[in-house]
């Protein structure tokens, strides 16, 4: 798929992975997430080589694929509460307030109690973004985070990414759309056929 790839992302930066379809954007993200095994090469975190499948490293990042990982038969709130319990990230204070805050941030407060089944793709993605906020993960691996989102939705993503960077987090996003970040904060990694 790709070879001889070397890159580093330091705290506070968003790496935008671009490249035509099939260039390996998703493969790269899934390899970083440990879902795929690289033939060679390694991933370092804080300078040390790290096994992408180790539980400790998994707690450092959250991976959001093309599809919002939500259960249709549960409400948005129930999905978010499950996500919290699954990752064991007990937020300060009760979970309910943290969920409300996250829903508010993505502008989905009204959607919280409706079954995900009844939500549009864009609305589902907002719930998934709320879940992103609720994980205390320092690294966000986002695959096409802004596809089929309206302008308002894209603004929400941009602001969330910005606040994650401000908090010293790292974002690796595979997308062609502009995330509304200053170029200095958003280096690009171009994956493409070898020239």
């Amino acid at each position: 798929m790709f070879a001889g790839l070397r890159f580093a992302v330091s705290a506070g930066l968003c790496l935008q992975v671009v490249g035509d379809n099939g260039a390996g954007k998703t493969t790269l993200l899934r390899t970083l997430a440990g879902l795929l095994e690289p033939d060679e090469g390694e991933v370092r975190w804080n300078g040390q080589r790290v096994e992408t499948r180790s539980l400790e490293f998994q707690r450092e990042f959250v991976y959001l694929g093309h599809q919002p990982p939500l259960k249709d038969d549960l409400t948005g709130r129930e999905n978010l509460r499950f996500g919290l319990a699954l990752r064991g990230t007990a937020p300060a204070g009760d979970a309910g307030r943290a969920i409300d805050a996250a829903l508010a941030e993505v502008g989905a407060t009204a959607l919280g109690d409706r079954l995900v089944r009844s939500l549009s793709t864009g609305q589902r993605r907002r719930i998934a973004l709320a879940a992103l906020r609720l994980t205390a993960a320092r690294i966000w691996l986002l695959d096409e985070p802004v596809t089929n989102l309206d302008a308002a939705g894209q603004a929400v993503v941009a602001s969330m990414v910005a606040s994650q960077l401000d908090a010293g987090g790292i974002v690796v996003a595979a997308t062609h759309q502009d995330l509304g970040l200053a170029p200095a904060r958003c280096p690009q990694l171009v994956l493409g056929r070898r020239a």
Partner: peptide
């Protein structure tokens, strides 16, 4: 199919 299995795999839990 709905992507939740991936989150379970990556939840940092055994």
């Amino acid at each position: 199919q709905d992507g939740t299995l991936e989150q379970i795999l990556l939840a940092g839990q055994p």
